[in-house]
Amino acid sequence: MKINHSTPENSIALTTSLQYITGPHWEPPTIPNATTYWRCSSCGRESIRERDLHRTTFHAPSCEVQEC
């Protein structure tokens, strides 16, 4: 599987989002079909696709990423 790490359209500035995006995190091996995920350290939202965290609409309204 090929992963595209390019910046998606409608993205927030990388300098803003990168300070809040953490990951990849691994799910515990006890979970069936465990995978990796990414998390916003400001609002706590998670996704298995890093590119989701580069969109302002993904974050909670009170998230610091929204304010930048």
Rank of each mutant, 00 (worst) to 15 (best):
C68M: 11
C43A: 11
I12H: 09
R55Y: 14
G44T: 04
Y37D: 11
A60V: 10
I3T: 08
D52I: 00
H5V: 03
P8G: 07
T16R: 10
T35I: 09
E50V: 06
G44E: 11
T7A: 08
C68S: 09
N33R: 00
S17W: 04
I48S: 12
T36P: 05
P28Y: 01
S42F: 02
L53R: 05
Y37F: 15
E64L: 02
S47K: 09
E9G: 12
V65T: 12
E46W: 07
S47L: 06
C43K: 09
C63Y: 02
C68N: 15
R39E: 15
A60D: 03
R39W: 03
P32A: 04
E27K: 04
N33T: 01
E50H: 06
S62Y: 06
G44A: 02
I48H: 05
E50W: 07
I31H: 02
R55E: 11
P29E: 06
C68G: 12
D52L: 03
G44W: 05
H5G: 08
T57K: 11
R45W: 03
T35Q: 04
T36A: 10
C63P: 04
R51Y: 00
T16K: 09
E50M: 13
E67Q: 07
I12M: 15
A34R: 08
I21H: 00
P8Y: 13
P61H: 08
A13N: 09
I31P: 00
I48L: 10
S62V: 03
R39N: 09
L18D: 02
E27G: 03
D52V: 05
Y37S: 13
C43V: 03
P28N: 01
T56K: 12
S47V: 03
T22R: 05
S11R: 08
I31W: 00
H54S: 10
E9R: 15
N4F: 02
L14M: 01
S17M: 04
R39H: 10
C43E: 09
R51C: 07
